[in-house]
Write a protein that binds this DNA or RNA. Sequence first.
DNA 1: AACTTTGTTGAAAATCGTTTCCATTTGAAA
DNA 2: TTTCAAATGGAAACGATTTTCAACAAAGTT
Lengths: 151, 151
Amino acid sequence: MGPPWWQAKFRGCGYRITIAREVILNTLAKTEDHLSAEDIYNHIHTKHPNIGLTTIYRTLDVLTNLGLVYRFDFGDKRARYELAEGPKGAHHHHHLVCTGCNRVVDYTDFIDAEVRLLQEIEQVLSKKYGFKITNHLIQFYGLCSRCQADG
Amino acid sequence: MGPPWWQAKFRGCGYRITIAREVILNTLAKTEDHLSAEDIYNHIHTKHPNIGLTTIYRTLDVLTNLGLVYRFDFGDKRARYELAEGPKGAHHHHHLVCTGCNRVVDYTDFIDAEVRLLQEIEQVLSKKYGFKITNHLIQFYGLCSRCQADG
DNA sequence: AACTTTGTTGAAAATCGTTTCCATTTGAAA
DNA sequence: TTTCAAATGGAAACGATTTTCAACAAAGTT
Ligand SMILES: [Mn+2]
Ligand SMILES: [Mn+2]
Ligand SMILES: [Zn+2]
Ligand SMILES: [Zn+2]
């Protein structure tokens, strides 16, 4: 099945391929969640006690700069990460965040309509404000059913 | 002209009206910028050397909880604040953020179309995921003209 | 105006996610 | 292998925000 899909991008940018990087990327690839650096450390630590938290932070920076990973702020005080594109390619989505328990739901409903409007807006804003727009962020905040019940 | 517009809301929630709170609110009311706690401290400090940074953090919490102020994260590592509604009422807008210099631009272009779509989406998501949605966040990221030039 | 209650304040210390330092290790090119 | 810059881990530093706590003051009551 050839070399893992991400290694080309890695080499192309002069980055080395290391166990730590492979393990971290695989951890993100396997989960549905939006993991923090420490989450990843905990997931990994039993099998790889020699990978330090510092390396995880550094690797997440690299991955983010390469565009392989997105970094999010959901309002708890730590950065959270998710894979931007997997072996199967990207599946663009936006987020629904519970302000009660910090649960995060991916949704793709209306994504097409959203993205269509966003592109229209980007065009206008680019021209009007002289920005070169590279990215957007859409999040909805509210209370999940569980947190509504807890009142 | 009667008592300042915000005092009613304050009293109603059992909060006291203090000089610090008045000064902080006025600072936010007078600026076009998105100030951080320290920004506000600096704006205020000459005229009110007795107002401490801690009080500013605490006041911003109160104001945010009252809904008088919005708290934002624009990617530099500090929270930034803006008035939610002034004497003249709110003017809903979204943000364009330069990832080079952290400049933030308010825009209202397409706001109606955005909000219309957002409301539609909120309805669907509320039902589908059982969330009670209270809020949304839309931001565009890119490079401002100055930062594009610096290349 | 003095008294009382209880929210508010400032300064210093604590917190905690993240970054930096630096001596050591390792990937990969030759 | 040899070589050398890139990568690593652990400890220390950082920096925005929060907590602690004794002193203070807003607003209601007498
Ligand atoms: Mn997601
Ligand atoms: Mn704004
Ligand atoms: Zn919840
Ligand atoms: Zn800029």
